[in-house]
């Protein structure tokens, strides 16, 4: 006794939707990390070093091993303004 194929259409739609969202999120993470594995367990020092990497290379996960910074590096440091807490 065969099951009509119409019975499986909703399952196909459900699986397809999960696949689309999963592939989208994985692509997003791949692009954010520049093809490398993600960082985890970051503390304040790691975050400020990643911000420095962004200032040096233009990308949060970019890396460079030049001994001297490119011109303009010392000028692209924005002032860190403290939030008023009163």
């Amino acid at each position: 006794m065969g099951v009509p194929f119409e019975a499986f259409l909703p399952y196909g739609i459900m699986i397809g939707m999960f696949a689309i969202s999963g592939a989208g999120l994985s692509t997003l993470r791949y692009m954010q990390n520049g093809g490398k594995r993600g960082r985890r367990g970051l503390d304040a020092w790691d975050r400020q070093m990643m911000e420095r990497d962004r200032r040096l290379t233009g990308f949060m996960r970019g890396q460079t091993d030049r001994p001297e910074a490119p011109p303009g590096f010392e000028l692209n440091n924005p002032w860190k303004l403290e939030k008023r807490f009163l």
Partner: peptide, 11 residues
């Protein structure tokens, strides 16, 4: 002085 140009992983 020129700032260090190496980023976090090389450092």
């Amino acid at each position: 002085v020129k700032e260090i140009g190496a980023s976090s992983a090389p450092l």
